[in-house]
Amino acid sequence: MSADMLEIDGSYGEGGGQVLRSALTLSLVTGTPFRITKIRAGRGRPGLLRQHLTCVKASCEISGADADGAELGSQTLTFRPSGPASARGGSYTFAVGSAGRTSLVLATVMLPLLLASGESVVRLEGGTHNPLAPPYEFLVEVLFPRLHELGFRIGATFERAGFFPAGGGSFTVTLGSGALLEPRAASWLTRGELTLSGAVVLANVGDRIGGREKIALAASLGIDRDAVTIKEVPSPGPGNAVMARATRNGLTHELVTAFGERGKTSETVAEDAAAQMKKYLASTAPIGEHLADQLLVPLALAKGGTFLTHVKSMHLTTNAWVLSRFLGDVVTFADEGNTTRVEVRPRP
């Protein structure tokens, strides 16, 4: 075993799949091999689950890396990339079973491919709208614009929605290669006056649901009904989501989602989305809870930057810890009133 093998405690912080995914990303970019132990220790079903394996396999596929212990239930995984920046641009398809969260697989391979030589086209199949991961709309409306600001080139084309439990959604992401476009350090400290709007996403469910959700969301957010769109999407199974977004000058600062399910009234779903939005609006921070933890690694791999967020979540601090294992202390947190100031220095 090589001396520079990084030992990572998989039960640290959030203790779930996130430590593994961030470690895979950073290992592919830096070329540092790692061994993660106690993967999901203490959970009901400890060790690697199916969705984690998909991330490991995808990481191996884009880079020719080597993984030991990539088996269901395995609590230890050794990952050896073939070198620094070993990801190769190209055409990839990652199918995620069990309506799994395609956005998490994308999050794992996105930066290595963005930094690889050669452009990539990645087709993702599986769940696109899953309560436990950012939905497709969040990626294209909230995350990708921020990545553009950092100089990364990324875009996506939507095909079908995949809701829990049927899955079967798909979209294609194109990732630009190598050199950053006008790279600059980010500074996301203010958000200014925001405009609220909403979207109801429907797949194979009755029209009445959409109408009721539109009315309820508009009422809860205190906006005009016309500011809420109803979007019918193709999908193999039934599905319904209500989204609320906050924009300024064409940039969506935050997009929150609530999912419809049997036994939950349309009004409850709409109110759920509105409540999440109100929580974001209650602070003055521009960067929402879920965006914050997804920005740490891109910032560290680009030119760094500073942002304010309203929740110092466990995912955020866990990601900062994984970054520190690979890159040293590049993240600093400072509490400022009801917000947290996060400073990320570019990797040495």
Binding site: R45, L49, R50, L72, G97, S98, P165, P238, R262
Partner: peptide
């Protein structure tokens, strides 16, 4: 019609397990 994803279907759900592929 339509509600099959709300029903438990042994063969389909067997292949949806997180820890058994």
């Amino acid at each position: 019609a339509g509600n099959r994803w709300e029903r438990w279907r042994p063969t389909v759900d067997l292949c949806r397990q997180d820890d058994f592929v």
